[in-house]
Design a protein around this nucleic acid. Structure first.
Lengths: 115, 115
DNA sequence: TCTGATACCTTGACATCCTAGGCATCTTCC
DNA sequence: GGAAGATGCCTAGGATGTCAAGGTATCAGA
C-alpha cells in the first residue's frame, strides 16, 4: 500500500500498463529507449514520467518475448538502440489495448455506482 | 475449476486497482469480505472476479493502514467481519480515485495518439 | 573544462497479486 | 443422516513488475 500521493507526475505506474504504453508508442514509429520515455512524457503533457529502471527491463522483456525487434544505430556519433514492433508485437498491442479497455470500463462502472 | 465461458473475467487486476475498488464499494455500504467480492462481480457484470487470495490480504492491509475499521457480526449463525471506511479511508478513496483518473486520462491520451 | 542532456545498463528491495491450499458453518436435497 | 454446494474466514509460497539508486560513456554549450 503506502501509496504516497505526489502531485507532480504519476508517482507509480499501474503494473501492467507500461508494456501497453511502450507498444503503442512504438506503433507510431520506431524509437530508442530514451526517446520512448521522452515521447510518452510529451504525449501525456508531463503526466507520465517513465523511469529508466522500469523502462529498460520492460524493453528487454518485450524483446525477449518476440514483441520487439532492436537495431543499433549511430545517431550524431552516439549509439542508440532502436526498437520496432514485430507482427506479434502488433497483436500484443491489440490484446493489451483490449484488456485495458475492459478493465478501465469495469473500474468506471464501480466508480460511477451511486448508493 | 475449469470455467468455460465466452467472456473470461479479467485474469489479472492491475496492481493498485484493488484498493480503490474495495474502498469505493465500502463507501456505498459496509460489507464483509465475501460480500465485497460478490458486489464487485455484480457491479461489473462478471467482468471483474476478485480472488480471495488477493482480497483478504488487501483488507488486512487497508485495516492496518487505518483506512478500514472491522467489526465482527453474526449473520444467520455465521460469523462475518464487516468493514467500513474510516475518515482516512474516505480521503484515501479520493486520492486513489484522483490517481486513477489521472492515469487513465494519460493512457487514453497515448492510445488515441495518431501517427 | 565543467555541466547538463543524451544514451545505455544493472542490482536489490519491495509491494502486490496469484495459485493453492486449509478450516468451519449453514442450507438443500436425496 | 449424509453429501454437496454456497457461504465465510484465513495463510504460505512464488512470480512479476516497478522503483530507487547506482554505474558507464558521449556530445553540446558556456
Amino acid at each position: 500500500m503506502a501509496r504516497h500521493e505526489q502531485e507532480q507526475p504519476e508517482a507509480e505506474l499501474l503494473q501492467g500498463t507500461l508494456d501497453l504504453l511502450i507498444l503503442k508508442v512504438l506503433a507510431l514509429e520506431p524509437l530508442h529507449g530514451y526517446g520512448i520515455a521522452q515521447r510518452l512524457k510529451q504525449i501525456t503533457r508531463d503526466a507520465l514520467q517513465i523511469r529508466q529502471g522500469s523502462l529498460y527491463p520492460a524493453l528487454y522483456r518485450l524483446e525477449k518475448g518476440g514483441y520487439l525487434k532492436a537495431t543499433w544505430k549511430t545517431i550524431a556519433g552516439r549509439d542508440a538502440k532502436f526498437y520496432a514492433l514485430t507482427k506479434a508485437g502488433e497483436r500484443q498491442l491489440e490484446n493489451e489495448r483490449a484488456g485495458w479497455e475492459r478493465l478501465s470500463a469495469a473500474v468506471r462502472l464501480v466508480l460511477e455506482t451511486a448508493k
